[in-house]
Each structure stands twice: as structure tokens, then as C-alpha cells.
């Protein structure tokens, strides 16, 4: 029943060279990232796949919390739309968060993140939903008037076409004026992934370390 070939790469890491070619990661970084993937994907069910519960557990260190954003990030990572993340989806998505990834990829990903209904634009109601969710999550209390005022000012600046929604072009202009809005799209950890998970060398198929 079993594959006795021990030289075979683990599930999901059959071809690290291809993933390295198609992402910003080197082969060694792909292999180190696999160590992180193994850790997250074995937290609840050790099946070599990350389900939503495991993703949430890794993000919040608890599985009790409902989060609009964790769901949204998971759904964007899940490009095969089957409710689970395989290593390829995980690596391709995290590649966008690498400090060396193109800024346009980060702009595009963040736009998709905030375009909750995936209509090709961010509407006011979605911004309000996300602001309310963030405040609830952090235990901050702001009156509805204050929230409306924050959103008014944001739309005054971002919605340059004055149609009540923020399209991709307006989003791009906004984040280029305010680069701090993309701060969470860059993970410095990814630059040091091989030193964070040095054990990858024991399974490495390449000699580029």
C-alpha cells in the first residue's frame, strides 16, 4: 500500500525548483518554508494540508476566534477553492508577502483582500464592515458618528472619481500616497526563513545553501 521510496520528496514539495522559479523564493527558502507549512498543517490533522481551523490557530494561537480577516486571507490563499491549503498555494501566496516581491503584487493582493464581495471595487459598506470588525476585535469603542466620519474622510481622499466606490486604480493611487497602508503586506520573517527553520537542510534536495 505504501511508497517505500524514501528518496521521494514529501507531499507538496515534489518539485521545489519549479516553485522557486515561479515565486520570489530560492529553493532553500522553499524548503525552509515547507518546515513552517508542516508545523501549521499538523496542528489539528496531520494530513499535509492546512484547513481553516489550523490557519486560524497559527494566526491567533486559539481556535475560538471568528475573524472576518482570517477568513478573507484564507480564501485568497485558497486559489483552488477547495477549503484547504496545499503547500503550493501556501508558498505562492506568501511569496507576495516577501520583502522582494513586486509592489504591484502587494497592491493587487490587498485590493482583493478588501474587496469583500469581489465586485472589482471596494464599496463604502465593505469599509464600514471591516472597520467595525477591527474595532470589535481590538476591544476599541468608537461611536457610529466617529466611524462614519473616518470613512467619509477616507472616501474624500480615495474616491477621486466620486462614485462612492474605490476601484483598483484609486486604490493604487491611495496606497502609493500612503505606503504604510501596505505595511502588513510585507513579512520580514520571509527574508530570514532559512535561519528560522534551519532543519530544512536535513531534507534538502539541493546544494544552494
Amino acid at each position: 500500500c505504501c511508497d517505500a521510496d524514501s528518496s521521494k520528496q514529501p507531499r507538496g514539495l515534489e518539485n521545489p525548483q519549479v516553485l522557486a522559479t515561479e515565486t520570489v523564493f530560492s529553493v532553500s527558502e522553499i524548503e525552509a518554508l515547507y518546515e513552517l507549512f508542516k508545523k501549521i498543517s499538523s496542528a489539528v490533522i496531520d494530513d499535509g494540508l492546512i484547513n481553516k481551523e489550523e490557519f486560524q490557530l497559527a494566526l491567533f494561537k486559539t481556535n475560538k476566534k471568528e475573524s472576518l480577516f482570517a477568513d478573507r486571507v484564507f480564501d485568497l490563499f485558497d486559489t483552488k477553492h477547495n477549503g484547504i491549503l496545499d503547500f503550493e498555494e501556501f508558498a505562492r501566496a506568501l511569496s507576495v508577502f516577501h520583502p522582494n516581491a513586486p509592489i504591484d503584487d502587494k497592491i493587487q493582493f490587498s485590493f482583493q483582500l478588501y474587496d469583500l464581495k469581489q465586485q472589482g471595487f471596494i464599496e463604502r459598506q465593505e469599509v464600514k464592515q471591516m472597520v467595525v470588525a477591527t474595532l470589535a476585535e481590538s476591544g476599541m469603542n468608537l461611536s457610529d458618528d466617529v466611524i462614519e466620519s473616518i470613512i467619509d474622510k477616507t472616501f474624500e481622499e480615495a474616491d477621486t472619481k466620486h462614485d462612492g466606490k474605490i476601484d483598483k486604480e484609486e486604490w493604487r493611487n491611495l496606497v502609493l500616497r500612503h505606503p504604510s497602508l501596505l505595511k502588513n503586506m510585507t513579512l520580514q520573517y520571509l527574508k530570514d526563513i532559512t535561519t528560522t527553520f534551519p532543519s530544512f537542510v536535513f531534507h534538502s534536495q539541493v546544494d544552494d545553501t
Binding site: 513552517l36 501549521i40 497559527a58 494566526l59 491567533f60 494561537k61 475573524s67 472576518l68 480577516f69 482570517a70 477568513d71 478573507r72 486571507v73 506568501l94 508577502f97 483582500l113 478588501y114 469599509v127 471591516m130 472597520v131 470588525a133 477591527t134 474595532l135 476585535e137 481590538s138 468608537l142 466617529v146 466620519s149 473616518i150 470613512i151 474622510k153 477616507t154 481622499e157 491611495l174 500612503h178 504604510s180 497602508l181 505595511k183 502588513n184 513579512l187 520580514q188 520573517y189 528560522t196
Partner: peptide
């Protein structure tokens, strides 16, 4: 002043959007 804050700046502070937690024990 919270009203001078950009709504997206506030949103980007959400824990669910800060993926560095994936790397921490």
C-alpha cells in the same frame, strides 16, 4: 484624533491581517 485616521490604516492593524503571527510560536 481618530477621525483624522485613514479607515484602511485602522483596518490594516487587524490581527487577522498580520501574518507575522504565523511565524511565531
Amino acid at each position: 484624533q481618530p477621525t483624522s485616521m485613514n479607515a484602511f490604516k485602522l483596518i490594516s492593524m487587524s490581527k487577522g491581517l498580520n501574518l507575522e503571527n504565523l511565524f511565531e510560536d
